[in-house]
Amino acid sequence: MSYEPPNPPANLPTEVVNTLNDFAPERLRDAANYAEELAEHKEREARLEEESGEDKVEERPDDLPDDVPSKATTTIKEINDNRYYYWQWREGEKIKSKYKGPVNPDE
């Protein structure tokens, strides 16, 4: 270990350096532990925000009607031996549907 004091990082504000220089060794260790934990917390928050942002970038399908939410999925319903596509989504406790078209457009 050197007898010379360490050089602070160039990007650390002077006020922070001066404050740290006034701290006793035990308080410096507390500040260092807190700074490390805070840095990990902020990195985790940024990562979670980035991941949630990726989820929100879902594109709305071109054939989705304006009155159907983007979270809707397609389902097939059979009525009188004919099969049809429906948009389907949940609103609270209810499941909503909207007609999309026949499964086989030639029918």
Rank of each mutant, 00 (worst) to 15 (best):
E43L: 08
A39H: 11
L28F: 12
D67E: 08
Y85Q: 11
D30L: 07
K98F: 02
S2N: 14
E4W: 05
P25H: 10
E78N: 03
D67T: 12
T75L: 07
N104V: 08
D81N: 10
D55G: 02
Y85E: 09
E26Y: 06
P69G: 03
F23Y: 11
L20K: 02
E36H: 03
A24F: 12
D55F: 01
N11R: 10
E51D: 02
N11V: 05
E58T: 00
E51H: 00
A32Q: 06
P65C: 01
D22Q: 14
N80A: 11
E43H: 04
E26K: 06
F23E: 10
A39D: 10
R83Q: 15
R44P: 02
N33T: 01
N7W: 09
E40Q: 05
E40T: 01
L28D: 10
S52M: 09
A72E: 00
P5I: 04
E43R: 07
N11E: 12
N18V: 08
N21I: 10
S97Y: 14
W89V: 07
N82S: 09
I76R: 06
K42L: 14
Y86W: 03
T75G: 13
V17M: 07
D62T: 01
L28S: 08
D67M: 04
Y85T: 05
G53N: 04
E15M: 03
D62E: 08
S2E: 12
S70A: 01
P61E: 00
S97L: 03
N33I: 02
D106A: 11
K100P: 01
R27M: 09
P8M: 10
Y99D: 04
T74Q: 10
M1K: 09
D63S: 06
N7D: 15
E91P: 12
S52W: 12
P65M: 03
R90L: 13
E40C: 04
R90G: 15
P9C: 08
K98C: 02
N82F: 03
N21L: 12
E59P: 00
E50C: 04
W87S: 06
D67K: 04
L64P: 00
P25A: 13
P69S: 03
V16H: 12
E93G: 11
L12I: 13
I79V: 13
E15G: 06
Y85S: 10
N7H: 11
